[in-house]
Every structure is written in C-alpha cells, then in structure tokens.
Amino acid sequence: MAATTVTDTGGVRIITEVISATDPRAAQLTAGSTTSPPTASSFRVRGFRRAQPKMLGTIHIFTGIIHICFGIILTASEHEAPSLPVASGILFWLGVLLLLSGSLLVESDKRENILLVKTCCVVNVGVILSTLVATLIHTTAIARDTPGCEATTPHGMKPEWCFNPKNKKLSNGLDSILVIFNLLEFCVAVAAVTFGYDAIKQQNYTRMTL
C-alpha cells in the first residue's frame, strides 16, 4: 500500500507518495524513466522535415528516371549526328545525380540523422549547379541548327532529315520540356538546401526533464 504525506510550506502544499516495488505503477514509472529524451540533432532533423523531404525526393527520382530514359532514346536515335545535350552526356549524369539526391531525401525522412541532412545539402548544391549547366546546354541546342545541317554545310552534303523542318521542331520541343524539368529540379534543390542549412545552423536545444 502506498504511503502519502502532506506538507504545507510557504502556502504551497506538497504531496509525497511512496510507491512500493510491487505496485503496478512502479513498473510504468521505471519504463518511462528509461526512455531517453530527444537529442538536439533530432530537433534539427525535424526542422528539416518541414520541407517534406520525402515529396522532394520523389520529384527528383521521377525526373531523374525521365532524364535517363530520354538519354537512352536520344542517344540511340542520334548516334550518327548527336545533338549537344546527347554529346555532352548531361542527360545521364544529371539523371544519376537526381536519383542519388532523391534517395537521400527520402531516406532523411525516415532517419533522424543530422549527417544525412548535411549530405543532402551537399548533393543538392551539386544538383543546383548541374541544372544551371543543363539549362544552358539545352537553350544553346535550341538556338543552334541541327548537327550536320548548319548553314555553312554545302547543300548537297546535308543529310535528308535537314530538309524536314518538323525534325527541328521536335528537337526543340524535347529540349524545351527538359528545360522545364530543370527548372523544377532547381526549385526542389533550392528548397532542400534552404531548409537543410537552417537545420544545420539551428541552435542546440536542451529539454529539461523532471
């Protein structure tokens, strides 16, 4: 049976209850006391999760797969006269980088690891720079003539597809779509880096336990 004492001190009443070891409540108190309080890094990771890293990572994975698929199709169709994006290989290495970034973002939503958040920031800085380069390459490809169809090439030496304007329109349409995807990837990477930087620089908080 629990013993209870009441003490009045300075207008404050203190009630003390002593619970025996056989009391069921003693096991509950013991279990509750062994639970470790949240660490400072867990609070910082929760701040990073406000950016919905799982959703951002899904976008990067989806667009990364699209880049790789486009890269395979265009490389196979333009093996004779590859366009600037195909020749640079940007569709493949940007796609791989997006898959890596997306996987890290999705994993950071599952694990409370501040080191994982820092890795996400580093990779997404690379994504930001890569999307800017990719946008420049695609816009340059749109402004240029189709490879092998330049104005300096003699009329008799131009391939047959040069005389079909629909081919250039199709190529420009694909580059325009990829530019839109690059802008989306850029925005996602900026959001990930912004929230990740805030989480890394956030002050450590110590929770008081009684």
Rank of each mutant, 00 (worst) to 15 (best):
I61S: 02
L84R: 02
R144C: 10
T5L: 07
T58P: 03
I15S: 12
N124A: 02
G71Y: 01
G57Q: 00
V133P: 00
V193E: 10
T5Y: 05
I59T: 04
K54C: 02
T152D: 05
I177Q: 14
K166I: 10
S171I: 08
I59N: 01
L98Q: 11
D175Q: 15
P53G: 04
F62I: 04
A141W: 04
G32Y: 08
N204D: 12
L178Y: 03
L132I: 15
K166A: 12
P85Y: 01
F92P: 02
G102I: 02
L97T: 07
S176A: 11
V122A: 14
T9E: 03
L136V: 05
A141N: 12
A191F: 09
C162T: 06
F92G: 00
Y197T: 12
W161M: 04
L210F: 10
G47S: 13
F181C: 13
S130E: 15
F195T: 05
I72Q: 00
L183K: 01
T4L: 13
R13N: 07
V18H: 05
D109H: 02
T75V: 05
L29V: 12
L184Q: 02
N113A: 03
V179K: 13
T146F: 06
A27N: 02
F181M: 08
S103Y: 12
E17H: 06
Y205A: 15
A2Y: 04
M55A: 05
T34K: 02
T153M: 14
F48R: 04
L91A: 05
Q28G: 05
V86I: 12
E185S: 10
D23K: 12
P82Q: 10
N113K: 08
G64R: 03
K169H: 11
